[in-house]
Design a protein around this nucleic acid. Sequence first.
RNA 1: GUGGCCGUAGCUCAUCAGGUAGAGCACCGGAUUGUGGCUCCGGAGGUGGGGGGUUCGAGACCCCUCGGCCACCCCA
Length: 428
Amino acid sequence: MVKNIRAIRGMNDILPDETPYWQSLEACVRKLLRGYGYGEIRLPIVEHTELFKRSIGEVTDIVEKEMYTFNDRNDESLTLRPEGTAGCVRAVIQQGLLGTPRRLWYSGPMFRYERPQKGRQRQFHQVGAEVFGIATPDIDAELILLSARLWRELGIADDVVLELNSIGSGEARARYRAALVDYLEARRERLDEDSQRRLQGNPLRILDSKNPDTQALLDDAPSLADYLDDESRADFARLCGLLDAAGLSYRVNPRLVRGLDYYNKTVFEWVTDRLGAQGTICAGGRYDGLVEQLGGKSTPGIGFAMGMERLVLLLSELASQGDAVEDGEADLYAVSVGEEAAAVALAAVERLRDALPDCRIVQHAGGGSFKSQMKKADKSGARLALIWGEDEVRAGTCAVKSLRDPGGQESVALGELPERIRAALAWR
RNA sequence: GUGGCCGUAGCUCAUCAGGUAGAGCACCGGAUUGUGGCUCCGGAGGUGGGGGGUUCGAGACCCCUCGGCCACCCCA
């Protein structure tokens, strides 16, 4: 007995049951981004490993332990992208797109080697938006308002909260970092094990520790807000003012920091409490130094990415407690009895498809008794069954039977079929 | 990488002091040899995740392993 081949852990199939959620979500996002003047950019899934090391940061968890890295046949180290910003920045530099402010978006799979759990898988999908060449906080506000509009259109606005912070310039962060380490170093014994480890590599991340004792310890720690540079402070105030003016509520979270090294100044997260431990559905921030760091001319940048799996999870969760609209796979199901009728039916259905291109017609295939064909017709969810037997073939007609409402069955000449069906389905 | 829970039919789950498995739904067929949904009758489908051990005998007990879920870490 051969062992079945399974999908890679954390790389899931998305089945026909779920794809409608994906399709409507994708359509909604696309329309929205178009409405704000963002252009789609399609990027490779594989890049040079070096790109991610230089952008995300050598000592981040993503680079240290979560990347799918392998050698190409010529021994170059390549990596399946763990996020989208790095590749997008690489592309705008390489393709010379930085002469003027640029609004872009992309979507597709990302890969991180992590233990799967609810809302987290090894292959997951993001839609990201990035803006290059605008340093002022009005664009920060635009991106946030754009995302807020999306939640409204998806009907999840009441289930998400915006968290906002400024982590300042690199220099400001370095000064704060030193102060924080001083404070925590003196109280090292009271830190949990994970945070003690973070004290070396990534002390800022201690700020969003989930450990309650650690959080309590932080109450008296120096505050990042007190260390901000003047420009970051002013821009953050301006951003808050813009959001206030637009009527968008938010929560300033002074302990919100982000795990990727390239962020500075504005950072934000949209979170929900309905998805278990992984509540962030969308997150982003400014990365003013990244373009230069990757070899382009100094250009400010800002962007966000949203996790499609998490959004789908939220959408389907909300849908299942509301009206679950069961839409079958077909509007019409065509059956026939006998070889001759099958040939007539096939040809007639093809003509019908010409006349009713938006109508979903499933033609029975695979044989079986008339009775079993009718069962399939019923299961398909079709409103009408189209039936061809000896009598119909001889008369040049088709029996149209209603499978739903009480309506019965009538014999229709082939030429009148499109019209009769249009009427029966109330088709546009 | 760490921890907790869990792997029995396609799906959801039973059973049992350890004596080689059962239901519901789904599927196929029949009652109705050209008419679905309801009802009734019948059928197919399992090496009980895999391996080893204890035992006369293991799906049940022990060990290992693989897989799943959730959580930590971290992140979308």
